[in-house]
């Protein structure tokens, strides 16, 4: 995958994540999640998202990637619950992780 394709993909994935985050913000009454960006934390105490919220978010993102991009990815990683290494730490790292899954042959 060349850099342009990767950039285009990222431009599609980040809004999907932000859309799901806004829905989660509505459900758990965290208004700030509606104006999230790539640096917004998804994990840990500072995020305000508990483990149930994170799982709900990731499932929603996975479903929308499947619907909108036609890619049947599985968001599951052994580092999922690591505060320092989880690919789900922030919106940006999650987007990179998803691009990695789509890139896999």
């Amino acid at each position: 995958m060349n850099q342009t394709t990767k950039t285009n993909l990222r431009q599609q994935i980040v809004p999907i994540i932000l859309g799901c985050l806004a829905i989660l913000g509505e459900e758990i009454s965290r208004e700030e999640l509606k104006s999230a960006d790539e640096n917004t934390r998804l994990f840990g105490e500072k995020s305000g998202i508990d483990s149930i919220g994170l799982v709900t978010l990731l499932i929603e993102v996975e479903a929308r990637i499947s619907q909108k991009l036609g890619k049947n990815i599985v968001i599951a990683d052994e580092r999922a619950m690591s505060l320092t290494h989880s690919p789900f730490r922030r919106v940006g790292t999650l987007a990179d992780y998803i691009i990695g899954l789509i890139e896999k042959p």
């Binding site: 799982v55 709900t56 499932i59 929603e60 996975e62 479903a63 599951a76």
Partner: peptide, 10 residues
Amino acid sequence: LRECAKIMVR
């Protein structure tokens, strides 16, 4: 189980 549960969670 994992994949059906994702649908059921929603």
